[in-house]
């Protein structure tokens, strides 16, 4: 028996742009189990980022139901504990060192004791950046920054990671490494992963592949 971590049913979202409404999500169904990884592909502008933001509870949805671990509470208070996010352009806080950026996730929940520091240190070790602990983002390469962002997303031991084109700003080889790291870490910690990507190769590494098309998700049955 595996439990469902993320459950979305009939998510709809439209934007008003000028005179006309743009229906971006038209009834998206998605369910992700603990430890499962799902990749979402789709054309640019098909609504992948919009969906991810909706799943994160950051953007209000017009219709549909969203459950986090069976609960409808998708507020800010719970978000920091329940999920971690990774973005295309890293979004590290430039004034903080790599270590403090990772610890920031715990800080925002009001927890910065010895266990949190130890965990941040071990995550830094896990993403191979022990030597860079005291470096600010400006002194890190793109790949290193994204590794810090991955570590930060995992800091609070979330049940779910939402990654929006995490390799979009990285070269082929570095991107490869970051995806491997994401998959490995989520596997290890039984964290569910939703990965938006344009890269077919990366998509194939996840447990399940879905396609975003005309505002809906289509299971593109992996077929192996």
């Amino acid at each position: 028996m595996s439990d469902v971590i993320l459950q979305a049913e009939g998510l709809s979202k439209s934007f008003l742009s000028g005179e006309r409404t743009l229906e971006v999500l038209r009834g998206v169904d998605l369910s992700v189990e603990a430890g499962q990884s799902v990749s979402i592909c789709g054309e640019s502008g098909s609504g992948k980022s919009t969906l991810l933001h909706a799943l994160a509870g950051l953007d209000a949805i017009d219709e549909g139901e969203l459950l986090w671990d069976g609960s409808t509470d998708t507020g800010a208070e719970r978000r920091g504990r329940f999920l971690g996010m990774v973005f295309q352009s890293f979004y590290l806080i430039p004034e903080l060192t790599a270590f403090d950026n990772i610890l920031m996730a715990a800080r925002m929940l009001g927890r910065v004791g010895k266990p949190e520091r130890d965990r941040a240190a071990s995550l830094l070790d896990r993403v191979g950046l022990v030597e860079r602990a005291d470096h600010v983002p400006a002194k890190l390469s793109g790949g290193e920054r994204q590794r810090v962002a991955v570590a930060r997303a995992l800091m609070n031991q979330p049940r779910l990671i939402l990654a929006d084109e995490p390799t979009g700003n990285l070269d082929e080889h570095t991107g490869e490494a970051v995806i491997a790291l994401l998959l490995e870490l989520s596997q290890e910690t039984q964290t569910a992963l939703v990965l938006v990507t344009h890269n077919k190769g990366h998509a194939l590494k996840t447990d399940r592949q879905v396609l975003m098309q005309e505002g809906r998700l289509i299971d593109s049955n992996s077929g192996h």
């Binding site: 208070e77 996010m85 973005f87």
Partner: peptide, 13 residues
């Protein structure tokens, strides 16, 4: 702006 967005994504009110 983007860091402020990030703080929201990290559960900041």
């Amino acid at each position: 702006t983007r860091e402020i967005g990030l703080l929201g994504a990290m559960g900041g009110k």
